[in-house]
């Protein structure tokens, strides 16, 4: 069993948990993910590793409550145990030889953008971090990003914090001002990554996008996470989750990711209703 060692609310819908999982902690690298189940009848969901501590054997995950399982997970507390926690899965982010990188995160995707930012920073790479949120209340990891980057730009859709605008506005400005990046790494909603990749393609800057498709086993067995990259079929779980953003067919994966939307919405509502009944 995998005990929740620490639970912290980062914003009203985003939660951080540190999980006791020594075998996973020993091997985990930025860019990789785990698969968990909250309980015996739970579904398997993939979550990207947000941090790890090899010494004390813990792995940190950060998740947004979007469906039934994340709702259930969010109702668990320190001392509770997750039923299953397997990993690390997928390939680690390629960081070797990078001298100057822009990391572009959006929403809860910033939770995944952060460990990469930190690792690059520790390797002596110049990192410019751009983090975008809808509004001030949803901002996460601001101090952490500041500490791990040479330049940090906070963006919000409504202008309630940082600069008003999209992450692509900020990135464009940096590029136009003459900043030259070896690579752009982008992690966030598919639509945001699509536009980031569209922008960097114009400037010919290599861009890596981290995908989070629907998945069951996470080991290459089901093929549910497949997407088209450069016209070829790839499995995000074993070939990714990071791919050359200029080659990804974003429209296709956006459609695949919404395959279960009606089911997910209903399952989430049912779960919320269950918790409400318990409170009564």
């Amino acid at each position: 069993m995998f005990e929740i060692l620490e639970k912290k609310c980062l914003n009203p819908t985003v939660t951080l948990m540190r999980i006791n999982a020594p075998l996973v902690a020993k091997k985990a690298e930025p860019g990789q993910f785990i698969i968990l189940r909250t309980d015996e009848n739970g579904e398997r969901i993939p979550l990207t590793v947000a941090d790890y501590d090899r010494e004390n054997g813990s792995v940190t995950i950060i998740f947004q409550v979007v469906g039934a399982t994340t709702e259930k997970l969010n109702h668990m507390n320190e001392g509770d145990c997750l039923h299953d926690f397997a990993g690390p899965l997928g390939r680690a982010t390629h960081t070797e030889g990078l001298k100057k990188v822009a990391v572009v995160g959006g929403g809860v995707g910033c939770a995944i953008a952060y460990p990469v930012t930190k690792k690059l920073h520790e390797l002596g790479c110049e990192v410019h971090a751009i983090a975008g949120f809808r509004t001030k209340d949803l901002v996460i990891l601001e101090d952490e990003f500041k500490a791990a980057s040479t330049k940090f730009i906070l963006m919000s859709d409504d202008g309630s914090c940082g600069e008003k605008g999209l992450v692509t506005d900020a990135l464009k400005k940096l590029i136009e001002s003459g900043e030259q990046y070896d690579e752009v790494i982008t992690i966030g909603p598919l639509i945001m990554m699509k536009f980031v990749c569209g922008l960097t393609k114009q400037y010919g800057i290599k861009t890596i996008a981290s995908m989070n498709p629907i998945m069951i086993d996470g080991t290459g067995m089901c093929g549910g996470c497949r997407l088209s990259v450069g016209g070829k079929m790839k499995f995000a779980c074993v070939d990714g989750p990071e791919f050359d953003g200029h080659e990804i067919d974003f429209d296709e994966i956006m459609s695949r990711n919404s395959m279960y939307k009606p089911f997910e919405r209903k399952a989430h509502e049912d779960t919320c209703n269950l918790f409400k009944q318990e409170v009564k």
Binding site: I216, C222, G223, G224, E252, S255, S258
Partner: peptide, 21 residues
Amino acid sequence: GLPRFMNIKGENLSGVYSANE
């Protein structure tokens, strides 16, 4: 455990499964 596909057009559409999945 690795599912094969036919490499024909449309295999990544929503509603297409490997038997494994």
